Computed example of a mutant assay.
Amino acid sequence: MKVRKFRILRLRHHVSMVELGRACGVSAQRISELELSENKPSAETVQKIRSGFESIIAQRGEKLGLLRQDYDSCKNSLMERVGEYEYEL
């Protein structure tokens, strides 16, 4: 199954769909749809996801240095679809 990079990032760093959804201002259901959808999301939606990760990183602080590094390495391609087990950040 192909998923978006931000799903891998979210799972690797134990960010729930609810947590990301709250940080983005969207529902957990919408996060799930975005992760699995083949449709290209709008620029506004992509920005919401980016802002959500930025917010979570800021809230969790120093503990998430690795999340910050992983996020920075793929923030411009969060919506790229990849095999769930084929991609390593």
Rank of each mutant, 00 (worst) to 15 (best):
M1S: 14
M1N: 12
V3D: 02
V3W: 01
K5M: 06
K5A: 04
F6V: 07
F6Y: 08
F6P: 04
R7H: 10
I8R: 05
R12S: 10
H14C: 09
V15N: 04
M17D: 07
M17K: 14
M17S: 07
E19G: 00
E19M: 03
L20G: 00
G21I: 04
R22V: 09
R22N: 14
A23H: 07
C24P: 02
V26D: 08
S27G: 13
S27F: 03
A28Y: 06
R30V: 09
S32F: 11
E33V: 10
E33H: 14
L34F: 03
E35T: 02
E35S: 03
S37H: 09
E38M: 07
N39I: 13
N39V: 13
K40D: 10
P41A: 02
P41M: 01
P41E: 00
P41Y: 01
S42R: 13
E44F: 04
E44D: 10
K48F: 06
R50A: 07
S51I: 03
S51M: 13
E54S: 09
S55C: 09
I56G: 00
I57G: 03
A58Q: 11
Q59F: 12
R60C: 01
R60D: 02
G61T: 02
G61V: 00
G61P: 04
K63F: 07
K63G: 12
L66G: 10
L67E: 00
R68G: 01
Q69A: 15
D70M: 06
D72F: 11
D72Y: 11
S73D: 08
S73N: 10
S73C: 07
C74G: 03
K75N: 04
L78C: 11
L78D: 09
G83T: 13
Y85P: 00
Y85V: 13
Y85K: 15
E86F: 09
E86M: 11
E88V: 15
E88M: 11
